[in-house]
Design a protein around this nucleic acid. Structure first.
Ligand SMILES: [Zn+2]
Ligand SMILES: [Zn+2]
Ligand SMILES: [Zn+2]
Ligand SMILES: [Zn+2]
Lengths: 132, 132
DNA sequence: TGGTAGATGTAATAACATTACGATCCTTCG
DNA sequence: CGAAGGATCGTAATGTTATTACATCTACCA
């Protein structure tokens, strides 16, 4: 597992851009954001994102084809993570649930399914947006 | 909720193709499959898939950008559904878990998150593939 | 000094999805 | 009957997301 000081220049740029971004960002919107810093091609972003995801500093939101900075970047070994994504404002809430994790791992064990990665994404409307 | 006999010609063609398909299929692979039946453009597939998903007869696998026929097409009102997807052979196992559903709905309620749709996808290697 | 592993730069292409517009079919009701 | 409205369909063009291929650079060390 890498620490912050292990990040390369491109990885740092991408992580910074994503951290400052309000909500999930697509790889191409990050690219646009980073053109000022010399980025020219999608692959520069995708390569950095791959590493950041590997390090647990970024998560990919499968249902949006987008990326978010980890909300708990110091929990390097956080287990299963779930996301609540507001379809109105784009806000993303990252959380964990021990029970859900135990149940899904239990299913995998029962079925001899060698679990590598779990995606949990809830789509809906957040409290703020509902209130308005 | 529509029954089978309500499906249009295109919807029926897409559902049949998907049902016969071994594993998840992308929209474009379905299109290729259906060219013999006169399909010409991606939109023909996407439109049919949209309806089939709305009717609960097809599920979209977000982490694969692909689609599968529902494994329990007669449970028209099935609640939360989870998928275990084998990264080796592509086999997809569709299942439900009351506890997981209750926990996630509980989180949503606690946070006043108006939940519309939940995606749960486990990626890994299935029992068969592990054995080999 | 040369080898090698990781990171980078760039162009081209592939894969996935939507917008826009018009035609067609079908039901409903004046 | 015939117009109105809605759902479906056909087609082209375009937009968005992701990867392949290949050359280069850099740090490290046998
Ligand atoms: Zn996280
Ligand atoms: Zn919101
Ligand atoms: Zn189903
Ligand atoms: Zn398998």
């Amino acid at each position: 597992m890498a620490h912050l000081h292990d990040l390369t220049k491109n990885q740092t740029l991408v992580l910074d851009a994503l951290t400052k971004w309000d909500g999930p960002a697509s790889a191409y919107s990050l690219l646009d954001q980073l053109r000022a810093q010399g980025f020219r091609a999608p692959l520069q972003v995708y390569r950095a994102l791959d590493k950041l995801i590997e390090y647990g500093l970024v998560h990919r939101l499968e249902s949006l084809n987008s990326f978010v900075a980890c909300a708990h970047p110091h929990d390097h070994a956080h287990g299963l993570v779930a996301f609540a994504i507001c379809d109105t404002c784009g806000q993303v809430d990252e959380f964990s649930d021990e029970t859900v994790e135990r149940r899904l791992k239990g299913w995998a064990k029962e079925h001899s399914f060698r679990l590598a990665k779990t995606t949990i994404e809830m789509r809906g409307i957040c409290a703020n947006c509902t209130a308005q």
